Amino acid sequence: MAAIRIRRALEADIAFMMSAERQPGYAELVGRFSEEDYRAEMAKADSAVLIGEQANRPVGLVILQNIHHHFRNIYIKRVVVAEAGKGTGTAMMASLNAFAFQELNAYRLWLSAHEHNHRARHVYEKLGYRQEGIQRGAYGWPDGRFTDLVQMSLLRPEWEAFPNSDHLR
């Protein structure tokens, strides 16, 4: 698989981002932003809306929050790939980890994944993320259901020691 480059999203990327997250079944896995939501997130000084690019075309997106956190704990708000099941998510997350630890000087990357999102959790585990706990009933759906979230993180020393880290290639 060709390398995936991480870059800051541009206003012109909003249509791609909205399309990627609106694929069948994604609403229950990653959520949805409106165009206004994306513009607002891109304008926040403490957020980074990023595009994963392969062969000069967008293949995914990531939203980071708290990028200036005083303890360097960066929250991964959203991860979306345009074509699931092709290894793109793993490659994009490896590049994202390198970007966050090298460019943003993160010490800890963390996220919350829906408990039922086994594919995403597998990717995170494959890249060295560890489960920290379960946030019971932490996500409420419009229909009144509540589901658990699995909190996972990756620390800089773990990333540096991880054999498949993007920075070691």
Rank of each mutant, 00 (worst) to 15 (best):
I14A: 13
I14F: 09
F16L: 09
M17G: 01
M17R: 01
M17S: 03
S19T: 14
R22L: 11
Q23F: 02
Q23I: 06
P24K: 08
P24C: 11
P24M: 05
Y26L: 15
E28R: 08
L29Y: 09
L29R: 14
R32W: 13
F33G: 04
S34T: 15
S34I: 05
E35R: 14
E35Q: 12
E36Y: 08
Y38Q: 12
Y38D: 10
R39S: 05
R39V: 06
R39Y: 02
A40W: 06
A40K: 08
E41P: 00
M42R: 04
K44Q: 14
A45C: 05
S47Y: 14
S47M: 11
A48I: 00
V49A: 06
I51L: 08
I51Q: 10
G52E: 04
R57I: 12
L61G: 10
I63P: 00
L64P: 05
L64S: 04
L64R: 02
I67P: 09
H68L: 09
H69G: 07
H69M: 07
H69D: 15
H70M: 11
H70R: 15
F71L: 13
I74R: 01
I74Q: 03
Y75G: 04
K77P: 01
K77Q: 13
R78N: 11
V79H: 00
V79W: 00
V81N: 01
V81C: 07
A82P: 03
E83Q: 12
E83C: 03
A84R: 14
G85I: 10
G87N: 01
G87L: 05
T88N: 06
T88C: 09
T88A: 08
G89R: 00
A91L: 12
M92K: 00
M93F: 05
A94G: 09
A94E: 01
A94V: 05
S95Q: 00
S95T: 02
L96R: 10
N97E: 05
F99C: 07
F99Q: 05
A100D: 02
Q102H: 12
E103C: 08
A106V: 10
L109S: 07
L109T: 08
